[in-house]
Amino acid sequence: MTNPPLPPSDLPDELLAGRAQGGDRAAFEALVVRTLGPARAFCTKLLRDPVLAEDACQEGFLKAWRGLPGFRGDSKFRTWLWRIFANVANDMRKPKPAQIGDMDFEAIPERDVAAEESVAREIAALPDRQREVLLMKVELDLSPAEIAEALGISYEAVKASLSLARKKLKERLE
């Protein structure tokens, strides 16, 4: 299987999105490749299940592809995309999330796997809303205002959740 030629890598997201709206699959795929890393990190850390996270990413990009006509270009493409992801991941949240033990931790000597595991565990222990807001900030690099828009909650609520999440993690990871 040969991949279709990708558009030049220096085009801005919004321009590629415009091409994709016109049916250009290669342009859309270029956007997927650009955003797959943060999308996966976000879904995996939020859902705590690598298999489910993979499905969420598929679903998120597919929804984006089909929802492209709804992208107006008045916001950043990523803000629009992450809003879709926030909804998809929310819908997929299982009633009983997987154990941290199901997560993959690469065995690379210079990494402190135990520390990462405790980070994972403490993130999992956060209330849903706080975990979601923190991960949108850290992994998706969204501003509080953008998070508020994506989640449909107030800016104040985002700031409060973010602050609480950081304080809890700081205290527990000390």
Partner: peptide, 26 residues
């Protein structure tokens, strides 16, 4: 408090599939 963000980012997750396999499926 800002160091917390770094710790969260420092948890490296391992994707279930390669980028190519993901794109194929999509």
């Amino acid at each position: 408090l800002l160091a917390v963000d770094e710790k969260v980012r420092g948890w490296k997750t391992v994707p279930k599939t390669s980028e190519a396999a993901f794109m194929e499926r999509l």
